[in-house]
């Protein structure tokens, strides 16, 4: 009585394992969290999309009257202009990776509703006397009249 029951359980376990494996495989091909500027330029999706790129150095501009942030992101091959009215965290700076949620406008810019800042997996201690690199807000303050 006991043996076949264990067999059934192991069978169920195998089915569940196969299911999980299938989910894993389908996720691999179907789950694309973000696209790169190059992929975006090739695809031109109509709706909302997440875009990942590195903030191109010296491209960040803050327009105070319209409260609009503009910058360019690049994947090394393709560069794309971005406009956003939502402010990223203090980690946002030249050369950092960002994930943008938004869409391509009619003029070919990327209008971002959301600017998320990726941080690296590298950790270095702040040396005595050293300060954090200036974030976006410091830049805005400097540029303010």
């Amino acid at each position: 009585m006991r043996r076949p029951r264990i067999g059934t359980l192991v069978g169920l376990g195998l089915v569940a394992a196969a299911f999980l494996a299938l989910v894993g495989i389908s996720l691999t091909s179907a789950l694309v969290y973000y696209v790169t500027p190059t992929e975006l330029a090739a695809g031109r999706p109509a709706g909302g999309v997440r875009l990942y790129g590195v903030v191109e150095p010296e491209s960040v501009r803050w327009d105070a009257p319209s409260s609009t942030l503009s910058f360019r992101v690049t994947d090394g091959t393709t560069t794309m202009a971005v406009v956003s009215r939502s402010l990223p965290t203090g980690l946002f700076r030249d050369g950092i990776g960002v994930v943008l949620a938004g869409r391509v406008t009619s003029v070919g810019e990327f209008a971002a509703d959301e600017v998320l800042v990726k941080h690296s997996e590298v950790y270095e201690p702040l040396r005595p006397g050293q300060t954090l690199p200036p974030g976006l807000l410091d830049t805005i303050r400097q540029e303010a009249p």
């Binding site: 941080h119 690296s120 950790y123 201690p125 702040l126």
Partner: peptide, 15 residues
């Protein structure tokens, strides 16, 4: 006691 992270500052301590 340990120094903060040079890029993230104190928030990294939550690690």
């Amino acid at each position: 006691a340990v120094p903060a992270d040079a890029a993230q500052g104190d928030v990294q301590r939550i690690m």
